[in-house]
Design a protein around this nucleic acid. Sequence first.
DNA 1: TTGAATACTGGCCGATCGGTCAGGCAAGCT
DNA 2: AGCTTGCCTGACCGATCGGCCAGTATTCAA
Lengths: 199, 199
Amino acid sequence: MAESTPARERTRREIEQQAVALFASKGYSATSLQDIATAAGCSKATVLYHFNGKAAVLAAALEPSKQALKVVIAEAEQLPADEAQELAIVRFSELAVGARGLIAVLSDILPTMDGMPEFAELISEGIRLTEIMAGQSHDQLELDVAKFAVNGLLGECRHPGERSDAELLELCNTALRRLLRPPATSEPALGATSPATEV
Amino acid sequence: MAESTPARERTRREIEQQAVALFASKGYSATSLQDIATAAGCSKATVLYHFNGKAAVLAAALEPSKQALKVVIAEAEQLPADEAQELAIVRFSELAVGARGLIAVLSDILPTMDGMPEFAELISEGIRLTEIMAGQSHDQLELDVAKFAVNGLLGECRHPGERSDAELLELCNTALRRLLRPPATSEPALGATSPATEV
DNA sequence: TTGAATACTGGCCGATCGGTCAGGCAAGCT
DNA sequence: AGCTTGCCTGACCGATCGGCCAGTATTCAA
């Protein structure tokens, strides 16, 4: 089982794996370097020896998801808008379910993003995907609904409960479709159904 | 302007108000007692003199939202399921938009909730509201969609961008309606859109 | 004027954070 | 054997956290 891996790579990988698990379950700021070191079976100094600070550990942990996201976007961008939207829904659901809580770390670092330029690209790609999800409509409301959808999806993956991957995937697909592919026409007059406007 | 307010109440209120603003803009754990004290124009010790620890400050800040939530639930619970759902959609949107980032603090404390029993009631009420939002359907998928909706709404209120209250409210209403009130009949055969049922 | 209650604060505490550094230790080359 | 190189660590640092306490200022009834 490739035990012959050089010690350097072996340790790096172990740290990265444990960091992924911890970030996903406790969030970024709530996970200390000591936590990661303990889980990886080494000292905190070793983590800092292999990674240039805590942010670098996160960057390494996020790298696979970032690459996968880039692939989806690249594929979607050479498709007509509605097909791109369809692809974005399916693939992003898979991506989010697969990465689970890890993607939710984004909302953890979003307020702290000033001075963390290594994540700017990831964020801008997320925004790009949101635009693709909005479909051919350039309406502001549709764009906002797409953002709403992404937020819901990230939140859902952050608290997955005891759902299986398949259940989670079906949920995401259903919800995204209802939000982004509303049944064609006939948006009912807004607010007509709200009985009491006072209070 | 009611300057005759006893010093006790005046200081308490000032601390609470500043805490609300800080929690909403920076989150719970990222806001220190010193931050609150500085904003309120008093010392950190004064904050602890009036409130029994940081969690108590949060509890006081969350109290109005909690009461409003209880009112909505109480009203909804003596209505038939579909009317209750309608009411929950409208009122919860208003509530969330009004409280803005404050409600989003919940996701900040959710992982830390062990040993913070003072918020258990608030959480359980949020879950109760989710059930009401699911409508008359007791389907697990519908329940999960409702959770998805709440997550999306909370996420949207956490990053409100430069949207106005009215825009935000319209967005929430639209999104919740699309998710929770799918166009009457003809749900396509369940799982028809999810290609792989194995896994 | 005095004494007690209330409101408030500076200074300190232990814990934990991310990060640094000098040095130990094993492996391979000469 | 010596020596270099790379992996790893214990000990430590300054900063910041929530919280505590002894003591001070203010107020007000007696």
